[in-house]
């Protein structure tokens, strides 16, 4: 899905040659291996092959999950982390999108914005943490800003590249059809940039969760990261494992949301992809 533009120039309407996809294993087969692994894990724990200190049994983790859910600990932690991720993501995505539109749609915007953004992009994200702590203290702000900063660049870079990559031949069609500037942007440029922008969205969600996890490790008095760190102090490996699983589920869930959005927004490609 990472191709930035579809080759509409060719008169033939079939997809450009691509490697034949491997036949997808049937769903039944794909559904077998994860439970099998889980059972293996459980067996290894129950027989004492796998020490509870290193990795508690799935049943233990499940029990812990039930307990922490019942007393509200898990729900509160997830809510706090989710809120940080969402606010940071919204800020970063809005800024990235606005910058990409400004740089992509006007030469002046490109000249002014792109060079500094390319420079900032070179900064290591997690190297900024000390600076953010000095600037914003240790409350919610530095965590949210770290997420926003991480999200901004994938959104900006991909949307900007998407806008710039819009087929010049289609832009000519727009001119021949007498579309005004606004109509050209609305009917040709933005839809043309959308596939690449969605790639940026998915990348940015990955970064968002990663940034959040790191930010929460450093100093937090609530949230999933705090729950995990706190559990480490008390050697509660089961809670640590549970926290990791919850992070994973959250990441998968947001990724699935974007895939869904992709399927709906890019349905015009479906003829091309033959699905």
């Amino acid at each position: 899905m990472s191709t930035s533009s579809v080759d509409i120039a060719r008169p033939a309407t079939r997809a450009r040659p691509r490697l034949p996809a491997l036949p997808r294993p049937r769903l039944g087969l794909r559904a077998v291996s994860p439970p099998a692994l889980l059972i293996l894990w459980q067996v290894a724990s129950s027989t004492g092959l796998l020490s509870d200190r290193l990795l508690p049994a799935p049943a233990t983790v499940a029990r812990t999950a039930a307990t922490l859910t019942a007393d509200g600990t898990l729900g509160d932690a997830v809510a706090v982390s989710l809120q940080r991720a969402l606010i940071g993501f919204a800020l970063g995505a809005a800024a990235g999108l606005a910058l990409a539109l400004a740089a992509g749609l006007s030469r002046a915007g490109e000249g002014l914005l792109d060079p500094p953004l390319q420079m900032l992009r070179a900064l290591p994200l997690f190297g900024l943490i000390p600076l953010f702590i000095l600037w914003f203290g240790i409350g919610e702000t530095p965590k949210v800003i770290l997420v926003a900063f991480g999200v901004l660049f994938p959104i900006y870079l991909n949307t900007y590249a998407g806008i710039r990559g819009v087929d010049a031949k289609l832009a000519e069609v727009g001119r021949v059809l007498q579309l005004g500037r606004i109509a050209l942007i609305r009917h040709i440029v933005l839809p043309g940039a959308l596939p690449q922008a969605l790639v940026g969205l998915r990348q940015s969600l990955g970064v968002a969760w990663l940034a959040l996890i790191v930010a929460e490790q450093i100093n937090a008095s609530k949230g999933l990261g705090f729950m995990i760190n706190d559990a480490r102090e008390f050697l509660r490996v089961d809670i640590v494992v549970l926290g990791l699983l919850v992070y994973a589920v959250l990441g998968l869930a947001t990724d699935a949301l974007v895939r869904l959005a992709e399927r709906r927004a890019l349905s015009w490609r479906r003829g091309l992809l033959g699905t």
Binding site: V6, K169, L170, Q178, H187, P191, W268
Partner: peptide, 19 residues
């Protein structure tokens, strides 16, 4: 044009009514 240059994200009707 030589290539039809249809706008791929607009259905056939949308291409004809564009502009």
């Amino acid at each position: 044009f030589q290539e039809p240059r249809l706008v791929p994200w607009k259905r056939v009707l949308g291409n004809v009514t564009l502009g």
